[in-house]
Amino acid sequence: MAKILIAGCGDIGCQLGSLFSEQGHTTYGLRRNIEPIPDTITPIQADLSTSLPELPKDLDYVFYIASAGKYKDSAYYQAYVSGVKHTLQALKGQTIKRIFFISSSSVFGQSEGEKVDENSPTTDSNFSTKRLLEGEELILNSDFNSTVIRFGGIYGPGRTHLIDLVQDGKAHCMEDVWSNRIHSEDCAGMLAHLMNLDIQQPNTLDSLYIGVDNQPSPSCEVYDWLAEQLCVPDVEHIEPKESSRQMRSNKRLSNARIRGTGYEFIYPSYQDGYQKILDALE
């Protein structure tokens, strides 16, 4: 069984650690506030933005799942650059088999509905993508085997912002703009799958995976479907605006590489995932 560190043990980290515990692995979860960490994960109270305390010895795998608390450059720098540096420094001398770094599909700059895979070019046109790419580079150029996972829009229990907007009549969507999503359970499931695959077939993983479900979908289709399920009026459709964040995210992401490893999605489409949430809300 493996010894695993989850640096930045938030929602997805706790789900992932719980999966590992069920599989018999020993898991440590590092975060500032350790109260939310379940009993099956050994907590480590520390702040990634500062020098870290001594970490457990003989770790096999590390998952770096930090998030920026605010949408500002200093927060992104602390989460994805200085936090990575502090983690790598604290891991010196250990023989880690692989580090997994959780990034974002926002680093892909395509915005005209293009099909995108792991070989598509990225852009550092704003501070958030610049810091994410800096963190990726630090991990990939470290002394450890490493893999980067770029997740699309994450939704799931506790991540119901879109449902709330549609329910409250505050949502609008842009015509002909594509969106890409992944349920938080599949985020954890995909990460656990990759680690277990590395255990079974050491050093065969690629250095980069896109994490989205099987169904890139026009944003308006998703909004309209939610409105129908919630029995509320149709969502307002508006013309695309170049300055919109939705427009900047207009691309169709491929998950062919992760599916090629044998991973089967728990929620292969947004309908599958959102229906589970809606049922639970009832």
Rank of each mutant, 00 (worst) to 15 (best):
L132Y: 04
L133G: 04
L133Q: 09
E134L: 10
G135Y: 12
E136H: 07
L138W: 01
I139H: 06
L140D: 09
S142V: 03
S142W: 04
S142N: 08
S142Q: 07
D143K: 09
F144L: 11
N145V: 04
N145I: 10
T147R: 07
T147W: 01
V148K: 05
I149E: 05
I149M: 14
F151D: 07
G152A: 14
G152N: 05
G152W: 04
G153R: 08
G153W: 01
I154Y: 03
G156P: 08
R159D: 09
L162R: 02
D164S: 10
L165V: 00
V166C: 03
Q167K: 10
D168P: 00
D168N: 15
D168S: 15
K170S: 09
A171F: 05
A171C: 06
H172A: 13
H172P: 08
C173N: 01
C173F: 11
E175G: 13
D176P: 00
D176C: 11
V177G: 08
W178Y: 13
W178A: 03
W178N: 05
S179Q: 13
S179E: 06
N180S: 04
R181F: 13
I182M: 12
H183E: 10
H183K: 06
E185H: 14
D186E: 10
C187R: 08
C187A: 09
C187V: 07
A188M: 06
A188G: 01
G189A: 14
M190R: 07
L191D: 02
H193L: 15
L194Y: 04
M195Q: 12
M195Y: 00
M195T: 02
L197I: 00
D198G: 13
Q200G: 12
Q201S: 11
Q201C: 13
Q201D: 00
P202Q: 08
P202W: 10
N203K: 12
T204W: 11
L205D: 04
D206R: 01
S207F: 05
S207T: 13
L208E: 00
I210E: 13
G211V: 10
G211N: 03
V212D: 15
V212K: 07
N214F: 11
N214I: 05
Q215M: 10
Q215C: 15
P216Q: 08
S217F: 00
P218L: 11
P218W: 00
S219P: 00
S219F: 14
S219C: 14
Y223K: 02
Y223M: 14
Y223E: 07
D224Y: 06
L226Y: 06
A227H: 04
Q229H: 05
Q229C: 10
Q229I: 01
Q229G: 08
Q229F: 12
C231I: 03
V232W: 05
P233K: 02
P233D: 04
D234F: 01
D234N: 11
V235R: 02
V235H: 06
V235I: 11
I238V: 15
P240E: 13
K241C: 13
K241S: 10
S243T: 08
S244F: 02
S244Y: 03
R245S: 15
R245T: 13
R245F: 10
Q246H: 02
M247A: 12
R248Q: 15
R252S: 14
L253Q: 01
L253D: 12
L253I: 05
L253Y: 01
N255P: 03
N255L: 10
A256E: 13
I258W: 08
I258K: 04
I258D: 05
E264Y: 02
F265C: 06
F265Q: 05
I266S: 11
Y267H: 07
Y267I: 08
P268F: 15
P268E: 13
S269N: 10
S269P: 01
